[in-house]
Design a protein around this nucleic acid. Structure first.
Lengths: 202, 202
DNA sequence: TAAACATTCTATAAAACTATAGAATACGCG
DNA sequence: CGCGTATTCTATAGTTTTATAGAATGTTTA
Protein backbone atom coordinates (compact mmCIF):
# COMPACT_ATOMS: atom_id res chain seq x y z
CA UNK A 1 0.00 0.00 0.00
CA UNK A 2 0.91 3.63 -0.42
CA UNK A 3 1.29 4.13 3.30
CA UNK A 4 3.92 6.82 3.50
CA UNK A 5 2.13 8.98 0.95
CA UNK A 6 5.60 9.37 -0.43
CA UNK A 7 6.44 12.27 -2.69
CA UNK A 8 6.63 9.94 -5.64
CA UNK A 9 3.17 8.61 -4.93
CA UNK A 10 1.72 12.07 -4.62
CA UNK A 11 3.36 13.09 -7.84
CA UNK A 12 2.14 10.08 -9.77
CA UNK A 13 -1.32 10.36 -8.35
CA UNK A 14 -1.41 13.93 -9.56
CA UNK A 15 -0.24 12.73 -12.96
CA UNK A 16 -2.96 10.10 -12.95
CA UNK A 17 -5.62 12.71 -12.21
CA UNK A 18 -4.33 14.94 -14.96
CA UNK A 19 -4.23 12.09 -17.43
CA UNK A 20 -7.74 11.04 -16.52
CA UNK A 21 -8.92 14.62 -16.83
CA UNK A 22 -7.41 14.95 -20.27
CA UNK A 23 -8.86 11.73 -21.59
CA UNK A 24 -12.28 12.23 -20.00
CA UNK A 25 -12.40 15.69 -21.53
CA UNK A 26 -11.46 14.33 -24.94
CA UNK A 27 -13.70 11.30 -24.98
CA UNK A 28 -16.21 11.59 -22.19
CA UNK A 29 -16.47 9.22 -19.27
CA UNK A 30 -17.60 6.11 -21.09
CA UNK A 31 -15.58 6.90 -24.17
CA UNK A 32 -12.40 6.91 -22.13
CA UNK A 33 -11.07 3.45 -21.33
CA UNK A 34 -8.76 2.78 -18.45
CA UNK A 35 -6.28 1.70 -21.08
CA UNK A 36 -6.44 5.16 -22.60
CA UNK A 37 -5.88 6.86 -19.29
CA UNK A 38 -3.02 4.60 -18.30
CA UNK A 39 -1.22 5.00 -21.58
CA UNK A 40 -1.75 8.76 -21.40
CA UNK A 41 0.45 8.72 -18.32
CA UNK A 42 2.80 6.07 -19.66
CA UNK A 43 1.84 3.06 -17.56
CA UNK A 44 -0.15 -0.10 -18.25
CA UNK A 45 -3.87 -0.49 -17.78
CA UNK A 46 -3.74 -2.64 -14.65
CA UNK A 47 -1.34 -0.30 -12.91
CA UNK A 48 -3.88 2.46 -12.91
CA UNK A 49 -5.72 0.65 -10.15
CA UNK A 50 -2.84 1.36 -7.88
CA UNK A 51 -4.05 4.96 -7.86
CA UNK A 52 -7.80 4.62 -8.26
CA UNK A 53 -10.07 2.04 -6.75
CA UNK A 54 -12.31 2.28 -9.78
CA UNK A 55 -12.92 4.31 -12.89
CA UNK A 56 -15.69 6.20 -11.18
CA UNK A 57 -13.40 7.19 -8.37
CA UNK A 58 -11.04 8.56 -10.97
CA UNK A 59 -13.84 10.71 -12.32
CA UNK A 60 -14.70 11.92 -8.86
CA UNK A 61 -11.12 12.91 -8.17
CA UNK A 62 -10.89 14.70 -11.47
CA UNK A 63 -14.01 16.70 -10.76
CA UNK A 64 -12.99 17.69 -7.28
CA UNK A 65 -9.50 18.54 -8.45
CA UNK A 66 -11.02 20.70 -11.15
CA UNK A 67 -13.38 22.71 -9.06
CA UNK A 68 -11.55 23.18 -5.81
CA UNK A 69 -9.10 25.99 -6.35
CA UNK A 70 -11.70 27.41 -8.63
CA UNK A 71 -14.01 27.90 -5.67
CA UNK A 72 -11.10 29.01 -3.58
CA UNK A 73 -10.28 31.86 -5.92
CA UNK A 74 -13.95 32.85 -5.94
CA UNK A 75 -13.82 33.00 -2.16
CA UNK A 76 -10.86 35.33 -2.29
CA UNK A 77 -12.63 37.58 -4.74
CA UNK A 78 -15.71 37.65 -2.54
CA UNK A 79 -13.67 38.31 0.57
CA UNK A 80 -11.76 41.48 -0.17
CA UNK A 81 -14.33 44.11 -0.98
CA UNK A 82 -13.21 45.78 -4.16
CA UNK A 83 -15.64 47.73 -6.31
CA UNK A 84 -17.99 45.62 -8.39
CA UNK A 85 -16.23 46.20 -11.68
CA UNK A 86 -12.98 44.87 -10.27
CA UNK A 87 -14.63 41.82 -8.82
CA UNK A 88 -16.45 40.97 -12.03
CA UNK A 89 -13.28 41.22 -14.06
CA UNK A 90 -11.45 39.08 -11.53
CA UNK A 91 -14.18 36.48 -11.74
CA UNK A 92 -14.19 36.35 -15.51
CA UNK A 93 -10.42 36.19 -15.53
CA UNK A 94 -10.27 33.45 -12.93
CA UNK A 95 -12.84 31.44 -14.81
CA UNK A 96 -11.44 31.84 -18.29
CA UNK A 97 -7.71 31.82 -17.70
CA UNK A 98 -7.90 28.55 -15.79
CA UNK A 99 -9.86 26.97 -18.57
CA UNK A 100 -6.93 26.45 -20.85
CA UNK A 101 -4.11 26.50 -18.36
CA UNK A 102 -5.48 24.12 -15.79
CA UNK A 103 -5.96 21.48 -18.42
CA UNK A 104 -9.32 19.94 -19.15
CA UNK A 105 -10.50 19.07 -15.69
CA UNK A 106 -13.45 21.43 -15.92
CA UNK A 107 -14.89 20.21 -19.14
CA UNK A 108 -15.92 17.01 -17.50
CA UNK A 109 -18.69 18.52 -15.45
CA UNK A 110 -21.37 17.32 -17.77
CA UNK A 111 -20.45 13.75 -17.11
CA UNK A 112 -19.95 14.17 -13.41
CA UNK A 113 -23.66 14.71 -12.97
CA UNK A 114 -24.35 11.27 -14.32
CA UNK A 115 -21.84 8.69 -13.28
CA UNK A 116 -20.67 9.77 -9.86
CA UNK A 117 -21.39 7.91 -6.66
CA UNK A 118 -24.01 9.75 -4.66
CA UNK A 119 -21.72 11.12 -1.99
CA UNK A 120 -19.21 12.59 -4.39
CA UNK A 121 -22.01 14.03 -6.49
CA UNK A 122 -23.42 15.83 -3.49
CA UNK A 123 -20.02 17.14 -2.55
CA UNK A 124 -19.55 18.50 -6.03
CA UNK A 125 -23.00 20.00 -6.15
CA UNK A 126 -22.27 21.79 -2.92
CA UNK A 127 -19.07 23.22 -4.32
CA UNK A 128 -20.88 24.31 -7.46
CA UNK A 129 -23.71 25.90 -5.53
CA UNK A 130 -21.27 27.55 -3.20
CA UNK A 131 -19.49 29.05 -6.18
CA UNK A 132 -22.70 30.40 -7.63
CA UNK A 133 -23.82 31.80 -4.30
CA UNK A 134 -20.56 33.65 -3.84
CA UNK A 135 -21.04 35.17 -7.24
CA UNK A 136 -24.62 36.08 -6.44
CA UNK A 137 -23.41 37.80 -3.31
CA UNK A 138 -21.07 39.91 -5.37
CA UNK A 139 -23.93 40.98 -7.58
CA UNK A 140 -26.10 41.82 -4.58
CA UNK A 141 -23.34 43.99 -3.23
CA UNK A 142 -23.04 45.60 -6.66
CA UNK A 143 -26.72 46.48 -6.62
CA UNK A 144 -26.42 47.97 -3.14
CA UNK A 145 -23.46 50.05 -4.27
CA UNK A 146 -25.38 51.34 -7.25
CA UNK A 147 -23.01 49.80 -9.74
CA UNK A 148 -25.83 47.65 -11.08
CA UNK A 149 -29.41 48.37 -11.90
CA UNK A 150 -31.76 48.02 -8.99
CA UNK A 151 -34.12 45.50 -10.52
CA UNK A 152 -31.33 43.09 -11.38
CA UNK A 153 -32.09 39.41 -10.88
CA UNK A 154 -28.85 38.42 -9.20
CA UNK A 155 -29.45 34.72 -9.62
CA UNK A 156 -30.00 35.21 -13.31
CA UNK A 157 -26.89 37.34 -13.52
CA UNK A 158 -24.70 34.81 -11.75
CA UNK A 159 -25.93 31.96 -13.91
CA UNK A 160 -25.36 34.02 -17.01
CA UNK A 161 -21.79 34.79 -16.05
CA UNK A 162 -21.06 31.15 -15.42
CA UNK A 163 -22.78 30.16 -18.63
CA UNK A 164 -21.03 32.62 -20.87
CA UNK A 165 -17.67 31.93 -19.27
CA UNK A 166 -18.10 28.20 -19.77
CA UNK A 167 -19.12 28.72 -23.36
CA UNK A 168 -16.10 30.85 -24.11
CA UNK A 169 -13.92 28.51 -22.12
CA UNK A 170 -14.85 25.72 -24.50
CA UNK A 171 -14.08 27.88 -27.48
CA UNK A 172 -10.75 28.86 -26.00
CA UNK A 173 -9.78 25.27 -25.45
CA UNK A 174 -10.92 24.26 -28.90
CA UNK A 175 -9.22 27.09 -30.76
CA UNK A 176 -5.65 27.71 -29.62
CA UNK A 177 -5.39 30.82 -31.76
CA UNK A 178 -7.86 32.69 -29.60
CA UNK A 179 -6.30 35.34 -27.41
CA UNK A 180 -7.53 34.63 -23.92
CA UNK A 181 -6.87 38.10 -22.59
CA UNK A 182 -8.89 39.60 -25.36
CA UNK A 183 -11.80 37.27 -24.75
CA UNK A 184 -11.71 38.13 -21.07
CA UNK A 185 -11.93 41.81 -21.87
CA UNK A 186 -14.79 41.42 -24.25
CA UNK A 187 -16.81 39.10 -22.05
CA UNK A 188 -16.30 41.39 -19.11
CA UNK A 189 -17.34 44.36 -21.20
CA UNK A 190 -20.47 42.61 -22.47
CA UNK A 191 -21.52 41.67 -18.96
CA UNK A 192 -20.73 45.02 -17.45
CA UNK A 193 -22.81 46.87 -20.00
CA UNK A 194 -25.56 44.31 -19.91
CA UNK A 195 -26.03 44.57 -16.18
CA UNK A 196 -25.30 48.24 -15.68
CA UNK A 197 -27.88 50.72 -14.42
CA UNK A 198 -30.04 52.50 -16.97
CA UNK A 199 -28.17 55.69 -17.75
CA UNK A 200 -24.64 54.41 -17.22
CA UNK A 201 -21.38 55.84 -18.41
CA UNK A 202 -19.28 54.15 -21.05
CA UNK B 1 -36.48 -3.81 -46.33
CA UNK B 2 -38.39 -0.62 -45.73
CA UNK B 3 -39.04 -0.07 -49.41
CA UNK B 4 -42.33 1.77 -49.40
CA UNK B 5 -41.15 4.18 -46.76
CA UNK B 6 -44.50 3.46 -45.26
CA UNK B 7 -46.06 5.88 -42.80
CA UNK B 8 -45.47 3.42 -40.00
CA UNK B 9 -41.80 3.19 -40.86
CA UNK B 10 -41.44 6.95 -40.95
CA UNK B 11 -43.19 7.25 -37.67
CA UNK B 12 -41.10 4.60 -35.97
CA UNK B 13 -37.90 5.98 -37.42
CA UNK B 14 -38.82 9.34 -35.96
CA UNK B 15 -39.47 7.64 -32.64
CA UNK B 16 -36.11 5.93 -32.88
CA UNK B 17 -34.34 9.22 -33.47
CA UNK B 18 -36.14 10.81 -30.57
CA UNK B 19 -35.32 7.92 -28.29
CA UNK B 20 -31.68 8.00 -29.31
CA UNK B 21 -31.61 11.75 -28.77
CA UNK B 22 -33.01 11.40 -25.28
CA UNK B 23 -30.64 8.67 -24.23
CA UNK B 24 -27.58 10.26 -25.82
CA UNK B 25 -28.43 13.49 -24.06
CA UNK B 26 -28.79 11.72 -20.74
CA UNK B 27 -25.77 9.47 -20.94
CA UNK B 28 -23.54 10.61 -23.75
CA UNK B 29 -22.69 8.60 -26.82
CA UNK B 30 -20.69 5.83 -25.21
CA UNK B 31 -22.76 5.85 -22.06
CA UNK B 32 -25.86 5.07 -24.06
CA UNK B 33 -26.13 1.43 -25.05
CA UNK B 34 -28.24 0.27 -27.94
CA UNK B 35 -30.23 -1.63 -25.35
CA UNK B 36 -31.02 1.65 -23.60
CA UNK B 37 -32.15 3.31 -26.78
CA UNK B 38 -34.26 0.38 -27.88
CA UNK B 39 -36.02 0.04 -24.55
CA UNK B 40 -36.60 3.79 -24.50
CA UNK B 41 -38.79 3.30 -27.54
CA UNK B 42 -40.21 0.01 -26.34
CA UNK B 43 -38.49 -2.46 -28.65
CA UNK B 44 -35.63 -4.92 -28.20
CA UNK B 45 -31.97 -4.20 -28.75
CA UNK B 46 -31.57 -6.09 -32.00
CA UNK B 47 -34.61 -4.47 -33.57
CA UNK B 48 -32.98 -1.10 -33.42
CA UNK B 49 -30.78 -2.11 -36.32
CA UNK B 50 -33.83 -2.15 -38.50
CA UNK B 51 -33.73 1.65 -38.29
CA UNK B 52 -30.03 2.39 -37.96
CA UNK B 53 -27.16 0.66 -39.68
CA UNK B 54 -24.99 1.36 -36.67
CA UNK B 55 -24.91 3.28 -33.44
CA UNK B 56 -22.83 5.99 -35.07
CA UNK B 57 -25.41 6.46 -37.76
CA UNK B 58 -28.00 6.93 -35.05
CA UNK B 59 -25.91 9.71 -33.58
CA UNK B 60 -25.53 11.33 -36.96
CA UNK B 61 -29.26 11.27 -37.55
CA UNK B 62 -29.91 12.72 -34.14
CA UNK B 63 -27.52 15.57 -34.76
CA UNK B 64 -28.91 16.44 -38.16
CA UNK B 65 -32.46 16.16 -36.90
CA UNK B 66 -31.55 18.50 -34.06
CA UNK B 67 -29.94 21.26 -36.02
CA UNK B 68 -31.91 21.40 -39.25
CA UNK B 69 -35.04 23.34 -38.54
CA UNK B 70 -32.94 25.31 -36.16
CA UNK B 71 -30.89 26.62 -39.05
CA UNK B 72 -34.01 27.01 -41.08
CA UNK B 73 -35.61 29.34 -38.58
CA UNK B 74 -32.38 31.32 -38.44
CA UNK B 75 -32.56 31.70 -42.18
CA UNK B 76 -36.05 33.07 -41.95
CA UNK B 77 -34.99 35.57 -39.34
CA UNK B 78 -32.07 36.65 -41.48
CA UNK B 79 -34.26 36.93 -44.56
CA UNK B 80 -36.97 39.38 -43.63
CA UNK B 81 -35.21 42.54 -42.58
CA UNK B 82 -36.75 43.60 -39.32
CA UNK B 83 -34.95 46.03 -37.01
CA UNK B 84 -32.09 44.52 -35.06
CA UNK B 85 -33.93 44.36 -31.75
CA UNK B 86 -36.66 42.25 -33.28
CA UNK B 87 -34.23 39.92 -34.92
CA UNK B 88 -32.23 39.39 -31.78
CA UNK B 89 -35.31 38.60 -29.77
CA UNK B 90 -36.49 36.20 -32.45
CA UNK B 91 -33.12 34.49 -32.39
CA UNK B 92 -33.05 34.09 -28.65
CA UNK B 93 -36.62 32.86 -28.67
CA UNK B 94 -36.02 30.38 -31.46
CA UNK B 95 -32.96 29.07 -29.71
CA UNK B 96 -34.40 28.81 -26.21
CA UNK B 97 -37.96 27.76 -26.85
CA UNK B 98 -36.88 24.82 -28.97
CA UNK B 99 -34.51 23.69 -26.26
CA UNK B 100 -37.15 22.21 -24.07
CA UNK B 101 -39.85 21.58 -26.62
CA UNK B 102 -37.79 19.88 -29.29
CA UNK B 103 -36.47 17.37 -26.79
CA UNK B 104 -32.81 16.81 -26.19
CA UNK B 105 -31.50 16.49 -29.69
CA UNK B 106 -29.38 19.59 -29.33
CA UNK B 107 -27.53 18.67 -26.20
CA UNK B 108 -25.63 15.98 -27.99
CA UNK B 109 -23.40 18.29 -29.92
CA UNK B 110 -20.43 17.71 -27.73
CA UNK B 111 -20.32 14.09 -28.65
CA UNK B 112 -21.02 14.61 -32.28
CA UNK B 113 -17.68 16.29 -32.69
CA UNK B 114 -15.92 13.18 -31.53
CA UNK B 115 -17.62 10.06 -32.69
CA UNK B 116 -19.11 10.97 -36.01
CA UNK B 117 -17.90 9.66 -39.34
CA UNK B 118 -15.97 12.32 -41.20
CA UNK B 119 -18.63 13.12 -43.79
CA UNK B 120 -21.42 13.61 -41.32
CA UNK B 121 -19.16 15.67 -39.10
CA UNK B 122 -18.36 17.98 -41.95
CA UNK B 123 -22.03 18.27 -42.82
CA UNK B 124 -22.84 19.22 -39.27
CA UNK B 125 -19.99 21.64 -39.01
CA UNK B 126 -21.23 23.34 -42.11
CA UNK B 127 -24.70 23.69 -40.66
CA UNK B 128 -23.27 25.05 -37.42
CA UNK B 129 -21.04 27.51 -39.21
CA UNK B 130 -23.86 28.55 -41.44
CA UNK B 131 -25.97 29.27 -38.40
CA UNK B 132 -23.27 31.37 -36.82
CA UNK B 133 -22.62 33.26 -40.02
CA UNK B 134 -26.28 34.13 -40.40
CA UNK B 135 -26.22 35.49 -36.90
CA UNK B 136 -23.05 37.42 -37.59
CA UNK B 137 -24.73 38.94 -40.60
CA UNK B 138 -27.56 40.17 -38.42
CA UNK B 139 -25.10 41.84 -36.12
CA UNK B 140 -23.27 43.45 -39.01
CA UNK B 141 -26.55 44.85 -40.23
CA UNK B 142 -27.26 46.06 -36.72
CA UNK B 143 -23.97 47.94 -36.65
CA UNK B 144 -24.71 49.54 -40.01
CA UNK B 145 -28.12 50.59 -38.77
CA UNK B 146 -26.61 52.19 -35.70
CA UNK B 147 -28.43 49.85 -33.34
CA UNK B 148 -25.13 48.46 -32.13
CA UNK B 149 -21.90 50.12 -31.24
CA UNK B 150 -19.56 50.67 -34.12
CA UNK B 151 -16.56 48.84 -32.74
CA UNK B 152 -18.55 45.67 -32.09
CA UNK B 153 -16.80 42.41 -32.85
CA UNK B 154 -19.65 40.65 -34.62
CA UNK B 155 -18.01 37.26 -34.48
CA UNK B 156 -17.60 37.61 -30.76
CA UNK B 157 -21.17 38.77 -30.42
CA UNK B 158 -22.58 35.85 -32.37
CA UNK B 159 -20.58 33.31 -30.40
CA UNK B 160 -21.69 34.92 -27.18
CA UNK B 161 -25.33 34.72 -28.12
CA UNK B 162 -24.99 31.08 -29.01
CA UNK B 163 -23.03 30.40 -25.84
CA UNK B 164 -25.40 32.10 -23.46
CA UNK B 165 -28.44 30.58 -25.15
CA UNK B 166 -26.95 27.13 -24.90
CA UNK B 167 -26.09 27.66 -21.26
CA UNK B 168 -29.60 28.79 -20.40
CA UNK B 169 -31.04 26.06 -22.57
CA UNK B 170 -29.33 23.51 -20.38
CA UNK B 171 -30.68 25.14 -17.26
CA UNK B 172 -34.17 25.24 -18.73
CA UNK B 173 -34.09 21.57 -19.53
CA UNK B 174 -32.70 20.69 -16.16
CA UNK B 175 -35.10 22.78 -14.13
CA UNK B 176 -38.73 22.45 -15.25
CA UNK B 177 -39.82 25.21 -12.91
CA UNK B 178 -37.98 27.84 -14.91
CA UNK B 179 -40.25 30.07 -16.92
CA UNK B 180 -38.88 29.98 -20.44
CA UNK B 181 -40.51 33.21 -21.55
CA UNK B 182 -38.96 35.02 -18.64
CA UNK B 183 -35.53 33.66 -19.37
CA UNK B 184 -35.89 34.71 -22.99
CA UNK B 185 -36.72 38.25 -21.94
CA UNK B 186 -33.82 38.50 -19.56
CA UNK B 187 -31.27 37.02 -21.88
CA UNK B 188 -32.43 39.27 -24.67
CA UNK B 189 -32.23 42.25 -22.36
CA UNK B 190 -28.75 41.38 -21.19
CA UNK B 191 -27.51 41.01 -24.73
CA UNK B 192 -29.24 44.09 -26.03
CA UNK B 193 -27.76 46.29 -23.35
CA UNK B 194 -24.38 44.62 -23.56
CA UNK B 195 -24.02 45.24 -27.25
CA UNK B 196 -25.75 48.59 -27.52
CA UNK B 197 -23.98 51.77 -28.55
CA UNK B 198 -22.39 53.90 -25.86
CA UNK B 199 -25.07 56.36 -24.88
CA UNK B 200 -28.09 54.17 -25.53
CA UNK B 201 -31.62 54.52 -24.27
CA UNK B 202 -33.05 52.14 -21.72
C1' DT C 1 24.39 -5.56 0.38
C1' DA C 2 20.04 -7.27 1.77
C1' DA C 3 15.63 -6.78 3.67
C1' DA C 4 11.32 -4.28 3.36
C1' DC C 5 8.37 -1.81 0.99
C1' DA C 6 6.54 0.73 -3.20
C1' DT C 7 5.42 0.63 -7.83
C1' DT C 8 4.50 -1.47 -12.19
C1' DC C 9 3.70 -5.45 -15.11
C1' DT C 10 1.34 -9.66 -17.12
C1' DA C 11 -2.42 -12.53 -17.41
C1' DT C 12 -7.04 -13.37 -16.90
C1' DA C 13 -11.99 -13.73 -15.15
C1' DA C 14 -16.28 -11.81 -15.71
C1' DA C 15 -19.34 -8.68 -17.67
C1' DA C 16 -21.14 -5.56 -21.21
C1' DC C 17 -21.75 -4.19 -25.75
C1' DT C 18 -22.34 -4.03 -30.98
C1' DA C 19 -23.93 -6.11 -34.90
C1' DT C 20 -25.86 -10.06 -37.57
C1' DA C 21 -28.74 -14.07 -38.90
C1' DG C 22 -32.76 -16.33 -39.06
C1' DA C 23 -37.18 -17.33 -36.89
C1' DA C 24 -41.56 -15.42 -35.45
C1' DT C 25 -45.20 -12.23 -35.63
C1' DA C 26 -48.02 -8.41 -37.41
C1' DC C 27 -50.02 -5.95 -41.22
C1' DG C 28 -52.10 -4.68 -45.65
C1' DC C 29 -54.34 -6.03 -49.66
C1' DG C 30 -56.31 -8.82 -53.40
C1' DC D 1 -59.08 -15.70 -45.88
C1' DG D 2 -54.28 -16.15 -47.25
C1' DC D 3 -50.24 -14.40 -49.49
C1' DG D 4 -46.38 -11.24 -49.39
C1' DT D 5 -44.08 -7.91 -47.10
C1' DA D 6 -42.79 -5.17 -42.99
C1' DT D 7 -41.48 -5.22 -38.41
C1' DT D 8 -39.85 -7.24 -34.25
C1' DC D 9 -37.83 -10.98 -31.61
C1' DT D 10 -34.36 -14.46 -29.96
C1' DA D 11 -29.94 -16.13 -29.92
C1' DT D 12 -25.30 -15.57 -30.51
C1' DA D 13 -20.47 -14.49 -32.31
C1' DG D 14 -16.93 -11.62 -31.52
C1' DT D 15 -15.04 -7.50 -29.21
C1' DT D 16 -13.93 -4.62 -25.69
C1' DT D 17 -13.81 -3.33 -21.00
C1' DT D 18 -13.22 -3.22 -15.90
C1' DA D 19 -11.10 -5.03 -12.09
C1' DT D 20 -8.14 -8.43 -9.54
C1' DA D 21 -4.23 -11.53 -8.36
C1' DG D 22 0.27 -12.50 -8.20
C1' DA D 23 4.81 -12.04 -10.23
C1' DA D 24 8.50 -8.83 -11.36
C1' DT D 25 11.02 -4.78 -10.84
C1' DG D 26 12.60 -0.42 -8.39
C1' DT D 27 13.78 2.13 -4.42
C1' DT D 28 14.91 3.16 0.26
C1' DT D 29 17.20 2.37 4.37
C1' DA D 30 19.48 -0.08 7.94
Amino acid sequence: MQNPESPKYQQQKQAAIRAAAAVFARKGFHGASTTDIASEMGIKQGSLYYYFKSKEEALAEVCLYGIRDYVQRMEEIARDDAPFEVRLLATVRSHLSSYREKNEALKVHNDERLYLPEIKRIKLKQLGSHYRELLEGIFEQGVRDGALREDLDCHFAAQSVIGICNAWGELIVRDPRLDVEQVITKVNDLLLRGLAPMGAKA
